[in-house]
Computed example of a mutant assay.
Amino acid sequence: MDSVPENAPEHCPGTDSDAAGKASACAGCPNQNICASGETKAPDPDIDAVKERLSTIKHKILILSGKGGVGKSTMTAMLARALALDDSKEVGVLDIDICGPSQPRVLGAEEEKVHSSGTGWSPIYVSENLAVMSIGFLLNSPDDAVIWRGPKKNGMIKQFVRDVDWGSLDYLLVDTPPGTSDEHLSITQYLSAAPPVAAVIVTTPQEVALLDVRKEITFCRKVNIPIIGIVENMTTFVCPKCKVETAIFPATTGGGTQLAIDAELPLLGQLVLDPRVARACDNGTNFLLDEPDAPASLAFKNVAQKIREYFETQ
């Protein structure tokens, strides 16, 4: 995979390409000289250790959007819980939202602390077959702010993929921050060292979200990450009292349905906005077990089934 710098021109050939710094698209790029010098091509000395660690994880799934506030963390946790309903499967959640880690709270493990052993950091188990790792476990307080520049955040992500002793997993879901920047380049570089890896793109119906989500799709295609499909979150709100369904975020340009058509990707599901899901995430409880027949629960389970089917056909 050719790594693409954060501030690269639109048609950047990537730092690993023989055309790095020499292509016409490189003209005017602030990274042109260093790319042309070949200094960016030095292999990461830890890539073999990362590859060995990740070799025991069958399927790696990036939960991406490009837009904040569309429900990536909720989606990650709910899909992980849905996949873990199968007791024969081992599931992990890696939270690489360094500045805004949510998974400890969402998965009900906020009070836990990470332990280390001779084989590395031990993830926190929220059930017998569902584990999670997050920088949130390393902070002294949930109110502590992580005020780091890119290189230090990237170093933390490397530690997560190199030093966490996940054991054998069937699925590792990665909760990502918004954007297409440092964290995304780092995690795709490391996960691509031990395929298969694929992405689920999360959006909401309104155009302001779709603008950023389209950029995320472009990012995946530039770095050669296959996309399983698109999930539209918060499609409608169903009142728990009167059952009236309302489109709070109108799909003025067709929403996730039209985006999936335009991008030639599967629409994995459209999820209702259910306040009980938000309450369960705040309390760290398992909504899928508490409300197994709720429309939201059925939708999450359906998306999880489509993810399973995707990997079975690869």
Rank of each mutant, 00 (worst) to 15 (best):
I135G: 03
P178Q: 01
P151D: 09
R81W: 03
D182M: 14
D143Q: 14
D86N: 06
S181G: 15
P177G: 09
E128M: 10
E90F: 06
G150I: 10
A80D: 08
M156L: 11
V91E: 00
I124H: 04
G71N: 04
D143N: 15
A82Y: 11
S134G: 09
G69V: 14
P178G: 01
S122K: 13
D170N: 05
V161R: 02
M156G: 14
S181A: 15
D87K: 14
F137G: 02
V126D: 01
S73C: 04
A131V: 03
D87M: 10
S122E: 09
L172R: 07
H115W: 11
V132Y: 00
S181D: 12
A77Y: 08
L169D: 00
G118K: 11
S73D: 00
R105D: 08
P177S: 13
S127K: 00
K72S: 01
H115F: 11
S117C: 14
W121R: 13
S88A: 09
K152W: 05
Q159K: 13
I147R: 15
P151W: 09
K152Q: 08
K113G: 09
M156I: 14
L139P: 09
A77M: 12
P104V: 11
Y125I: 05
L173V: 13
P101S: 03
T188C: 11
V93P: 10
V174Y: 12
G108F: 04
L130I: 04
V106E: 10
P142E: 08
L79Y: 02
V106G: 04
T119M: 04
G118N: 14
K89W: 11
Q159T: 09
L169V: 03
T176F: 11
G92H: 05
S116P: 07
P151V: 05
S192I: 07
G69K: 12
P151K: 09
E111L: 15
V93M: 08
S88Q: 14
F160P: 00
